[in-house]
Design a protein around this nucleic acid. Structure first.
Lengths: 189, 189
DNA sequence: CGTCTATTTGAATGTACTCAAAAGCGGTGG
DNA sequence: CCACCGCTTTTGAGTACATTCAAATAGACG
């Protein structure tokens, strides 16, 4: 479990053995079966989740019960669940699309960690900076490109994901219905 | 110019007079007239922009020449332009909607600053962390709510902006046409 | 006060959606 | 290993929502 996340951290900062230990001590591991939920509903403090193995989908559910996917995360990627249980307006759910292993880091413990080991300020600064850029690009793409073009982008940038994730999930990520995505695919050939 | 941005920084970290000086030394001030562009096209390195006075709109232009607004920033807010001139696929433009004063911090100088004054790692970590959360919420809202509901949210959360920003810009931020927004408003009364 | 831009209004259009049903595919158990 | 069962994807018809285009009105700025 830990080597993967330590390698991820090592991409930006260098830790001593002791610092590694105080980091991993804060991580909560979880195994999730295929189609299972990462952290059950109702009991999720704001936290970051690192995917060690498998694939996680972040989605929200609207008033009609329809699911809208916001992000996919495979091995070596982080996903975020900053929503507090008290604020029910915007609630995110994390679902494992495969047999999955994750590590959780609660947001309050992230703060603690940064105080104890200031190097982590840098790591998470870069993590959020890159995440911010990614979200901004996605928002831009959603506004300026048609669903057809966005699907082509998706295939180009995440060629592997396409094979691991159901089309209905890709459709909901693109902001269209599965039926419409099916039509777009037929059109392309 | 500087007191505003120093107060903004002071919300998260405490700086010595010397540190303040090495920070402000990196900032590039710019005055922009109403409807003018913040940093002319073609010459914008990836950078952060702090709005001291006025109002800035971040937008992108699609293949048909239509503008899509991604964000608005008024006094005390930051906006980002991480796009490199070399990557023309996604290009953001910052436009002043009023007589505006801004301060620019180039991304490479942000890195320098963080190395010199590690406290800034913390400041920008929080800045990007909050920005990330905001973008994620906006993406979620765009997927799960209709334009009508999103407009109601916009009015509730940014009641002042509504008075300062043209409706066509609000429409493009919501992802709809000005005509359709006009119809929604008529419907509400 | 005049001009230019923004907003409103209306009609026609089209894109993407809903609903229902068939076909395809994969996972599971016999 | 094969057959069944259930979920996913495809297909098609009808529909609704939001768009485009054009023109009139309102409003802002010089």
């Amino acid at each position: 479990m830990y080597p993967a996340i330590l390698a991820n951290v090592a991409r930006h900062i260098t830790l001593t053995a002791e610092e590694c230990a105080s980091f991993t001590a804060l991580l909560v591991p979880q195994h999730v079966v295929r189609a299972g939920l990462v952290v059950e509903a109702g009991q999720r403090p704001p936290q970051l989740t690192f995917v060690v193995r498998g694939c996680v989908r972040t989605y929200t559910t609207d008033a009609h019960g329809r699911e809208h996917s916001l992000a996919f995360a495979t091995e070596g990627w982080w996903c975020t669940n900053f929503q507090r249980p008290e604020a029910p307006t915007t609630t995110l759910t994390l679902q494992a699309l495969e047999e999955t292993d994750v590590l959780h880091l609660r947001l309050d413990q992230l703060e603690q960690l940064c105080e104890q080991v200031p190097k982590f300020e840098r790591f998470f600064r870069l993590l959020f900076q890159h995440g911010y850029l990614l979200l901004q690009r996605q928002a831009e793409a959603r506004l300026k490109f048609t669903a057809e073009v966005r699907y082509a982008h998706f295939l180009r940038y995440y060629p592997r994901l396409h094979q691991r994730v159901a089309q209905k999930h890709i459709a909901s990520f693109l902001g269209i219905t599965p039926e419409f995505l099916s039509m777009l695919r037929k059109k392309r050939g």
